Deep mutational scan, measured.
Amino acid sequence: MQVTWGNVTVTFSNPEEAKKYAEKVARKLGGQVELHNGQFRIK
């Protein structure tokens, strides 16, 4: 499962870890987490 924002992509084998990481990054950037085609995207 991947977490992407800007031109950065981070890949996780565990979807739960990916979700936690995406939420943490979104909080830092003041963005929203979207699940899109099996990727968490931060907008």
Rank of each mutant, 00 (worst) to 15 (best):
G6W: 11
T11K: 09
L29I: 14
A22M: 04
E34S: 07
A22S: 03
E34H: 07
K28Y: 11
Q32I: 15
R41N: 10
G30T: 03
V3A: 01
T9M: 07
N14P: 02
G38I: 02
L29G: 03
L35V: 12
S13E: 12
V33P: 03
R41D: 04
A18Q: 01
N14A: 07
K19E: 07
K28V: 13
R27W: 09
K24E: 14
T4D: 02
E16P: 03
E17N: 10
P15W: 15
V8E: 06
Q32T: 15
G38E: 04
Q32N: 08
K20G: 07
V8Q: 08
E17I: 11
G38A: 03
L29S: 07
K28T: 09
E23I: 10
K28H: 12
S13C: 08
Q2E: 10
K24N: 09
V33A: 05
S13I: 10
V10N: 03
V25M: 13
T11N: 10
E34T: 08
G6P: 02
E23H: 11
V25I: 15
N7S: 11
W5L: 06
N7E: 08
E23C: 06
T9K: 06
V3K: 00
V8A: 05
E23G: 05
V8D: 04
Q32L: 12
E17C: 08
P15S: 12
M1F: 15
L29P: 01
L35S: 06
P15E: 11
K19I: 08
E34I: 13
L35Y: 15
E16G: 10
P15V: 14
P15D: 06
Q39V: 15
K20H: 11
G30M: 06
E16M: 12
A26H: 02
Y21H: 04
K43P: 06
N14V: 06
L29Y: 11
T4K: 09
A26N: 02
F40T: 01
A22Y: 02
A26S: 04
A22R: 00
H36F: 12
K43I: 15
F12T: 00
H36C: 14
E34Q: 07
A18T: 02
V3G: 01
T11G: 06
M1A: 10
N37A: 07
I42Y: 02
Q32P: 03
R27D: 09
I42V: 09
H36M: 10
R41S: 08
S13V: 09
Q39N: 12
E17H: 12
N37I: 03
H36S: 10
P15G: 09
T11F: 14
G6T: 03
L35E: 09
Y21S: 01
L29Q: 05
V10K: 11
G30F: 05
V8R: 09
A18N: 00
N37Q: 08
V3N: 00
Y21N: 01
H36T: 10
A18V: 01
E17Y: 11
Y21E: 02
V10A: 06
G31K: 05
A18F: 02
F12V: 02
V8K: 11
V25R: 03
T9D: 03
L29R: 04
N37R: 05
K24H: 14
R41T: 15
G6Y: 08
V33Q: 01
Y21W: 09
N7G: 09
G6L: 08
E23Y: 14
G30V: 04
T4E: 05
G30K: 08
Q32S: 14
N37F: 05
G31W: 07
T11L: 11
W5H: 07
Q39T: 13
A26P: 00
M1S: 11
N7V: 08
A18E: 00
R27C: 12
V25W: 11
